[in-house]
Design a protein around this nucleic acid. Sequence first.
DNA 1: ACACCGTTTTGAACACGTTCAATTCCTTCT
DNA 2: AGAAGGAATTGAACGTGTTCAAAACGGTGT
Lengths: 218, 218
Amino acid sequence: MSKSERTKQTIVAAALELFREHGYEATTMRMVAKHAGVSVGNAYYYFKSKDVLLQAFYREVHDAEVAAAEPALASAHSFRERLRAVLHSKLEVIEPYHRFSALMFRSAADPKSPLNPFHPDGRDVRRGGEALFARVVDEARPRVARDLAAELPGLLWTYSMSLVLFWIHDDSPERERSRAFVDRTTDLIATAVRVASNPLMRPLRKKALDLVRDLTPN
Amino acid sequence: MSKSERTKQTIVAAALELFREHGYEATTMRMVAKHAGVSVGNAYYYFKSKDVLLQAFYREVHDAEVAAAEPALASAHSFRERLRAVLHSKLEVIEPYHRFSALMFRSAADPKSPLNPFHPDGRDVRRGGEALFARVVDEARPRVARDLAAELPGLLWTYSMSLVLFWIHDDSPERERSRAFVDRTTDLIATAVRVASNPLMRPLRKKALDLVRDLTPN
DNA sequence: ACACCGTTTTGAACACGTTCAATTCCTTCT
DNA sequence: AGAAGGAATTGAACGTGTTCAAAACGGTGT
């Protein structure tokens, strides 16, 4: 590992630690630099902005989400149960950050941020999210109709971003409203998917999928 | 009009003018103060933050949207046409701000901002938006089922915020993708509303509306 | 006229994210 | 070993949103 690589790691590690402890806003670049034992300028040499550091945080959270979803994905077979389980474990993973959420997850829709469903740049961040939902869909039994299965991960990711948006403003005890949101909307979605997967629905399904494809950039 | 009221108006007028010309970010509080002929501190005496001034901008845009929707609402009768017309005129009104949009309309989903569908504080801003859609629904012929008509304005407002989110990232010429978004999704929504308004659908409709009510704060 | 007191106004000061010219470090070539 | 030159590092400086102690203003009672 080269020297510069090590410096970079030190900085990102310092940033993530401070983000976790104090949240995004309360963590200043001066704090990050000091904690990493480098100068402010050096931090900027490796990371163009504070936002870029936040993206590293997202990646970490995403990895934790994938890991947390693993057991559920191994045991749940129906689409409904798989989706439900993945979302509930996502909620558990992000729970510790709820007090900072307003700022740490603002990106769910902030145009400047790569986490946004419509944003062109943040494709990799997005791909990661979609990959998780692809696993939900692809290994579900009974199977989801093939054409639908192709578009579903992207749609589910966008849907999960709405969940985050909902969750951010959820001050109910134990976040029960968010959990209810998951339970009830996954029910709805699963029903819709089941109905749509019926061969008789193929023409209507095709029309809906065309719509989605036309409106999704790339 | 009291002296303080006049100062306040001067400041907000200066801010809006500069926002329109340079966008939100490029307009500094020092510029606003200078343009209004007051000190920076005085601007802060009347407006707790720059964001508060942005809210005044939203109000202005909203008023323009309402005004622009007027003729369409007077002549279109079907729900589908009324909704379509309102959204298209909305797009026209906000078009001049597209180059600043990333920052001026970030609030569409920013948790800190009152424009957010899930935000508790910004109720008045939100009410204004819902009121417009209430007009779309209430005077539509054929009528929308009563129970559905009660929840629809709120849902449509949320939907219009997604439109804004889509529009922000839409770089297609003449914003044609956004206009396609409107045409095709309003079609979908109108069809759904028509189907749902059928008396036979009442039980299912009730279930869906209960879901919405349960998940909407207040 | 004066003193009083709450409201309004000021601009210097603060902390922040970010930039940049200058410096130090390290590698490579002679 | 020494020179050269690119990569890494520094910290002061900039412009920003925001705060605050102090000053100016304006009305009211004496």
